[in-house]
Nucleic acid binder design. Sequence first.
DNA 1: TCAAAAGTGTTCGCTATACACCCATGG
DNA 2: CCATGGGTGTATAGCGAACACTTTTGA
Lengths: 262, 262
Amino acid sequence: MGPEGIHPDLRDVLRKSNIDLSVITGKTAGVEVMNGYWYKYPHAALTTDCVIFGYDRTGLSVLLVERGIEPYKGSWAFPGGFLRMDETSEECARRELKEETGLDAAFMEQFHTFTKTDRDPRERVVTIAYFALVNKADVKGGDDAADARWFPVDDLPPLAFDHIDIFQHAMQSLREKIHFEPIGFELLPEEFTMSELQSLYEAILDVEFDRRNFYRKMLSLELLDVVDDGIVRNSPRIAIKYRFNKAKYDEMKEKHKFRLEF
Amino acid sequence: MGPEGIHPDLRDVLRKSNIDLSVITGKTAGVEVMNGYWYKYPHAALTTDCVIFGYDRTGLSVLLVERGIEPYKGSWAFPGGFLRMDETSEECARRELKEETGLDAAFMEQFHTFTKTDRDPRERVVTIAYFALVNKADVKGGDDAADARWFPVDDLPPLAFDHIDIFQHAMQSLREKIHFEPIGFELLPEEFTMSELQSLYEAILDVEFDRRNFYRKMLSLELLDVVDDGIVRNSPRIAIKYRFNKAKYDEMKEKHKFRLEF
DNA sequence: TCAAAAGTGTTCGCTATACACCCATGG
DNA sequence: CCATGGGTGTATAGCGAACACTTTTGA
């Protein structure tokens, strides 16, 4: 949209503001002018939201922040915010996550973009949603965001906007994803026992596995290294600790297409 | 953003244009003014693109349109366009598809949103991408869009923007999806033979199946109805025609979680 | 006449599943 | 002292993978 596409009144304003018209020529939209931005066609606002999954022995949880302002003041929502012009959506999601919760997520993946026209009462907002997996133990108590809290996935408070849809979609994506990739380890401490790993899978997939079959299946994948902690394991009550061997996984992924198949 | 957030010059323009300032009060963005739209913060443009897969005996193809304007004039691109304020992204994708190719796709699914900051040289554009499955036989020759053409997936022309990324992502999503849902049938005529179905799966997954094992596996799913065409099938050379039983599939999906597992 | 297409069988081996056993700890 | 948690063993059924046979068409 060259200057000819601009309303005459606006052109006058530009002149009065000492803005060189030539900067507009050849640009189709997003003219920065008058303490704001002007576009020929309406633009929806773009945000990212992040569903952060955490896990401990009590089960699978998600991290929510309490809204301090209207709309939905007092409701809980997934951390997120507006996309800046110089960042990708993943960068945005990571930045917002850091700002609002102090977290760095190792694993983060885009899973869906929500576009219903009435998602936000203020204006048209389109949200690119991510889910992240973090080790709850890494989250220091007394966070930057005092209003951020973990909620068990089967006992969520009322959520703002359409965040309940976002949550359900995230849960579904997590379940599908874990069938093909060993992402569950991101939710555990670096060293974990086999029963911890099993409980995690059962929590995510909402099923139960036979303990012994799970044990062998996991070991047969050859992705776990035994941690040599020097403990003389003459007692069956002291569980062996394992560590996920990511390098080995990446290598296997290169070769034959890999399937977890749970 | 109430009027106090507006640059004084803009306020003057509004007054001169007889626009009631009260319409702005309480709105945070998207003020319609001066032959365009004004926002306090910069907004990316939102588009949808659609990767349309078609299939016939020659293999798997995608539908591309030739760009008539810069940038990338003369390159090929997936059909798509800008999101309107009153439609969801899926509605947008379907509308654009209809406009540019005359097609109605039965199956259409969002698979990824592309957000790199330099995707379009003109302005920041974020694209919500869909893939669609259509029966190529349904596409009448001599389309509305004379510049739309099918290309085999393994012999694509140079693509505009980052559409090669979009294509690869779409291909990957299609492959993953077909493991869990019987979406392949959307690409075939209503009635098809077993070897047609097998060829389709082989084209999508880029593998080869044993004819007889494929045959039995498909039948064991109990999702195919035999078409009674009255032909006395004393000859093995006349293949049985099948029809996909969608109702049965939906029913099965309700009950036990369903897996195609190819 | 013979290669190709299409329907039907059969065998083999892997693995998912189910269940049994042992052993040391700790309440 | 015995229920609990943790490591290991084993039998079976089902399914995926590989391959054999038959029939008839059409080049």
